[in-house]
């Protein structure tokens, strides 16, 4: 027999007092720019440009990373500038990947700005291809120079609260500590250090690298990260476009949870239902 539930248990349809306002303003400030999306997308590793473009659209990302590479007539499809320009509302954030010193990163940033016209630069200096860990000394030097030149500098760093503070002090618009190694999908291995960085920072903290699932993106946002940067988790997913949408939802859910305020943790159980005066028991 089919169960029926009285409509009276629910709010009348016209009563939307408890509907969540998904349009509320919670902008991400970066330099003199603001973004409504807190998901930043990388464009590497996609099987083809069309999938990448569809993933960017599905993600709702407004800030998108690209890398500088030599022109190759045999690989014309590598040129993403034209295709990305077709998507409205996108700001490019070129990275300095490939640089192994501050001088190379500064040079790459200048070339990228010439090409993109964007003031954003993701400072990324990882000299060892085996682990791709960022070089803190070269990253600091390059960030300091580029911030002094007026770039909106977003340095990719290890989850080091001391370095994060020093980068903030030299004018970086954000700090982007890694969750785990680039492309590893190992998630938020650095959560303890990320927590310290978030507590100490006055600039947005963006987790960059290592995330595998929308749940991890949500967890990062719940911790108080201002945004997440995701590439491999979407590009290497079974269905990258669907995964881009899922990450978008994860980031929104995590951010809303953070702004709503998570309940305090307790070391013991705290009943949600009354435990006294139950069916004949004494109060």
């Amino acid at each position: 027999m089919k169960e029926t539930v009285s409509k009276s248990w629910f709010l009348p349809e016209e009563d939307n007092r408890h509907q969540y306002n998904f349009e509320f303003m919670d902008l991400l400030p970066l330099g003199s720019y603001t973004f409504s999306s807190r998901l930043i997308l990388g464009t590497g590793k996609y099987s083809d440009i069309r999938t990448m473009l569809d993933a960017v659209r599905a993600s709702g990302a407004e800030l998108v990373t690209v890398a500088l590479r030599r022109f190759n007539r045999e690989q014309m499809e590598d040129d993403l500038f034209g295709p990305l320009s077709e998507i409205g509302g996108i700001t490019l954030m070129p990275n300095t990947s490939g640089a192994s010193s501050a001088a190379e990163a500064v040079r790459a940033a200048h070339i990228a700005r010439e090409l993109s016209g964007s003031p954003f630069v993701k400072v990324e200096i990882h000299p060892n291809p085996q682990h791709l860990m960022p070089d803190p000394i070269e990253t600091f030097e390059a960030s300091k120079i580029l911030a002094g030149e007026g770039f909106i500098v977003m340095p990719y760093i290890s989850a080091d609260p001391v370095l994060a503070k020093r980068l903030e002090e030299v004018g970086c618009a954000s700090v982007m500590p890694l969750g785990s190694a680039i492309g590893s999908g190992q998630g938020l291995k650095t959560s303890g250090m990320l927590d310290l960085i978030i507590r100490e920072s006055t600039v947005p903290v963006i987790v960059d690298a290592g995330l595998r699932s929308p749940g991890e993106a949500a967890a990062a946002m719940e911790m108080g990260c201002a945004a997440v940067l995701v590439n491999s988790a979407i590009a290497a997913a079974g269905d990258p476009v669907a995964m881009a949408g899922a990450f978008s939802l994860g980031v929104v859910a995590g951010r809303r949870a953070f702004t709503a305020g998570l309940m305090p943790k307790s070391g013991h159980a705290i009943a949600t239902s009354p435990l006294t005066s139950f069916l004949g028991k004494e109060p």
Binding site: G42, T43, G44, K45, Y46, M52, T65, V66, A67, L68, R69, R70, F71, D78, D79, L80, F81, L84, L92, P94, N95, S97, I111, A112, L115, S116, I182, G183, A209, L229, N231, S232
Partner: peptide, 10 residues
Amino acid sequence: VEVLVFAGGG
């Protein structure tokens, strides 16, 4: 001479 373009990157 170097000719550079934007390629995919994270």
